[in-house]
Design a protein around this nucleic acid. Sequence first.
DNA 1: CGCCAATTGTACAAGTATTGTCAAGCTTGT
DNA 2: ACAAGCTTGACAATACTTGTACAATTGGCG
Lengths: 310, 310
Amino acid sequence: MLDLTSPVYPVRIVLRRTGLTAELLRAWERRYGVVAPGRTDGGQRLYSEADINRLALLRRATQYGHSIGRIAEFSDSELEDLLADAPAAPSSRSGPTPGAPGQIATNTRRACLEAIQWMDGGALDAALRRASVALGPTQFAEQVIAPLVREIGELWHAGRLRIVQEHLATSTIRQVLSGILAFAPAADEAPVFVAATTSGQRHELGAMMAAAVAAAQGWRAVYLGPDLPGEEIGIAAARLHAGAIGLSLVYPTDDPLIDRDLADLAEAIGRSIPVYVGGEGTARRGPQLGDLGFTVIPSLADLSDRLARP
Amino acid sequence: MLDLTSPVYPVRIVLRRTGLTAELLRAWERRYGVVAPGRTDGGQRLYSEADINRLALLRRATQYGHSIGRIAEFSDSELEDLLADAPAAPSSRSGPTPGAPGQIATNTRRACLEAIQWMDGGALDAALRRASVALGPTQFAEQVIAPLVREIGELWHAGRLRIVQEHLATSTIRQVLSGILAFAPAADEAPVFVAATTSGQRHELGAMMAAAVAAAQGWRAVYLGPDLPGEEIGIAAARLHAGAIGLSLVYPTDDPLIDRDLADLAEAIGRSIPVYVGGEGTARRGPQLGDLGFTVIPSLADLSDRLARP
DNA sequence: CGCCAATTGTACAAGTATTGTCAAGCTTGT
DNA sequence: ACAAGCTTGACAATACTTGTACAATTGGCG
């Protein structure tokens, strides 16, 4: 039985699941000792599940704007607190991944924000579609959509965006994600990934991104929609013989409906189907979700990686 | 443990979240001591959640017209009081025509209802797309989507459809309509058609159909999204130099917000832009809408016809 | 009304701190 | 053998800091 602290993952897995580069990961270890991986006899690093989780948290925090030097020594729960107030995702100075993709993502986000200012839905749509083709669904979701959604939220909170602008942006992003889902091949024998949002959760972009990532990994992604009771999600998953379920928790984070729904869902499927939960709303719910047998997804790259495995 | 007063945020995050510039923030600190951030070992500023909150309040207050020198020493609650006075930041029944098209529409609807029963999002999507190509956007919206939405509503009220099924259907239909909008040519010189839904109106399919119909007539259709205040719609229409506005009223039909929003919109645009209103919610509002200078659209075909004229 | 002075947002320069990335040379795993 | 990994020691790009300056408003005040 492998527990969360057994060192079993080689670097390349860590890189895929966290989105870090090899150089940066080693620099972090060397300079700040963010994790202390085990070693093979030959001296190569071996990471544990807990290490990966911590690194993903750190990366999200740095991409949000925290400086690595400051937060390197924070405990996992402190990092979660840090991310609980602050949404998930990049908007940092040098792009997430080096070179071209990061550049494309950064430029796209800038172009998108400009289009939103001008309420130019067409330009926004075009910019997003271009980027989605250039980057592929997973990178597109993680490096463009997620950060963009966060930036929009911040501008909106700062009072620098009108209601229409926010709505137009949301609608257009939803359109583009729909397009990606519709465009996905979907072989008949492919396992089914069911994505949805629980009661009261009206932010659907997270669930749609999860569906897009699943589709990119060859799953038949079915996006059920937002604001669904847990039991209903369970029924649909059972009827569709789903191989996995993706949920997104964003806001409100303290709604008691959430607990109810999660419990209902757990009961309806009885641990027979893996459930992945992502979004800012997961920050303070780690233990509860673990008890239900659900898996918390710290980043879309992590989800992508988990869905890629047999 | 992280609380509201632990200094953890570097400046860049503060700037993003407050909308201040670095120079201005430092000037405020230097000149008025609005906040007293902590420092890293290297001397860089570190702000707390409470600091950010206070700065955001100050910035909003200054934008509202208060001078920073006067309010710099106000407590947070005094600032909130100050801002309390300030304004807050921010279908159809025309049956299918006989003949081939009607046949296609009927068959499509039957296939769709079956796919919905089986929660087969893929089949539903495929059937709708096929029909949309075969019939063209206008006929598709009028003969397939509109009646289908009505039938779904009826089944749902009769308790013969699960919540998931209804949601899946709605999401999928929305996807297909998005696809049509995205696919539309949209010449740059084409007049702009703005579609939206007023406050409290969460059924967006009507507005999306209107946008699709407009796109089919060569307009540049911009779908703003659901649940928007009338004033915001007016602002967007003005900014986009819209040639026409389409609204959809479905449910709830007696919400007083509707009257308010319609009046706001009318005032914002001052009869300079024709406004078309459709949906079941228009049934009891004919006179009111007429007074405002709005046009009631009894069917999508009617809208299509009106948009074709000029 | 007209003028002076205070207020306030912005800009630039020069130096420090932080941090992502690279290169060279060597080792490990398959 | 060859791709992937390791370590050490840089380097360069940003980000941030302090201090000073400047132009545009604003607010008295005669």
